[in-house]
C-alpha cells in the first residue's frame, strides 16, 4: 500500500506501477467529463481541442458561477461545488477514452465494469476511487477552472481544472487485474445466503417478518 504523488500528465510506466489499495494524490491538470460529454465525443463524432494524452479524467459535472474573466478565472467560470458522479453509466466510454485520447487515469465513484478492467490491463490504465458525495471537501482541492470545451453541453462540458493535492484517492482497479469492486461484489454475493437465512427466507416458520 504505497502512496504516489502524480503531477499530470503521467506515463504508462507510472500508471502500471500502481496496485489496488495504493493511494494517489494529483497535482496540475485534471479534466472533468460526463455522460453528455462522452456521447458527444464518441457517438456523435465531435472533437475536442484538448490533449488528454497521459491525463486523468474525473466523472463530474460541477456547480459553477459565471464571473468576469481574470487570471484566477481565465474562462469566466469559478468553481462553486465540484464533486463526482457514479461511473458505471459511462462504462462503455473507458476504452475509447484510453485508445483514442490516451487517457491513463479515470477518477470516479462506484467503480467500472469488466470492459474497463480489460482496457486498464491491455492499454495501461487505472481507476481511482474518490468519495462520492464529499464534494465540499473535493472543491477545496480545485484551484481553478483553467479552460472549458464543448460548453454548449454545460454543465456537462469538458472541463479543465487545475488541482492541488487532489486526494488521497484509492487505487480501486489497476492494470494488473486487481479490482476492489469485483472482490467486494463476490464476497457480498457469497454472504447472500446467510443474509436470507437471517431473515428466515425459505423456513416457512417464524420469525414472520
Amino acid at each position: 500500500m504505497a502512496h504516489h504523488e502524480f503531477t499530470m500528465p503521467v506515463t504508462e510506466a507510472q500508471v502500471r506501477a500502481l496496485v489496488v489499495d495504493d493511494t494517489v494524490t494529483l497535482n496540475g491538470t485534471l479534466f472533468g467529463i460526463r455522460d453528455a460529454t462522452q456521447i458527444a465525443l464518441f457517438d456523435r463524432g465531435r472533437a475536442t481541442r484538448f490533449d488528454l494524452n497521459g491525463h486523468a479524467v474525473i466523472h463530474t459535472a460541477p456547480n459553477v458561477k459565471k464571473v468576469a474573466p481574470a487570471p484566477a478565472h481565465p474562462t469566466g467560470y469559478a468553481p462553486v461545488c465540484v464533486g463526482t458522479t457514479t461511473s458505471a453509466r459511462m462504462e462503455r466510454f473507458t476504452r475509447p477514452l484510453m485508445a483514442q485520447c490516451g487517457v491513463r487515469v479515470v477518477i470516479g465513484k462506484g467503480g467500472l465494469g469488466a470492459d474497463s478492467a480489460a482496457a486498464f490491463r491491455e492499454l495501461g490504465g487505472v481507476y481511482l476511487a474518490i468519495i462520492g458525495g464529499a464534494a465540499a471537501l473535493e472543491t477545496t482541492w480545485i484551484e481553478a477552472i483553467e479552460d472549458v470545451d464543448l460548453d454548449d453541453l454545460n454543465p456537462e462540458s469538458l472541463w479543465q481544472f487545475r488541482v492541488r493535492n487532489f486526494g488521497p484517492l484509492r487505487v480501486a482497479m489497476d492494470s494488473r487485474g486487481g479490482n476492489l469492486y469485483a472482490t467486494v461484489d463476490a464476497a457480498a454475493k457469497a454472504k447472500r445466503a446467510a443474509a436470507l437465512a437471517a431473515l428466515g427466507v425459505g423456513s416457512g416458520s417464524p420469525p414472520r417478518f
Binding site: V80, C81, V82, I131, G133, A134, L137, E138
Partner: peptide, 21 residues
C-alpha cells in the same frame, strides 16, 4: 471519516455537501 469530514467542510465553508443538486 472522509464523509464526516465533508459535512464539517460544508458547514465551515458554507458550501453544498454534494455536487448533485
Amino acid at each position: 471519516g472522509t464523509m464526516i469530514e465533508n459535512i464539517a467542510v460544508a458547514e465551515r465553508t458554507g458550501n453544498l455537501l454534494c455536487q448533485d443538486t
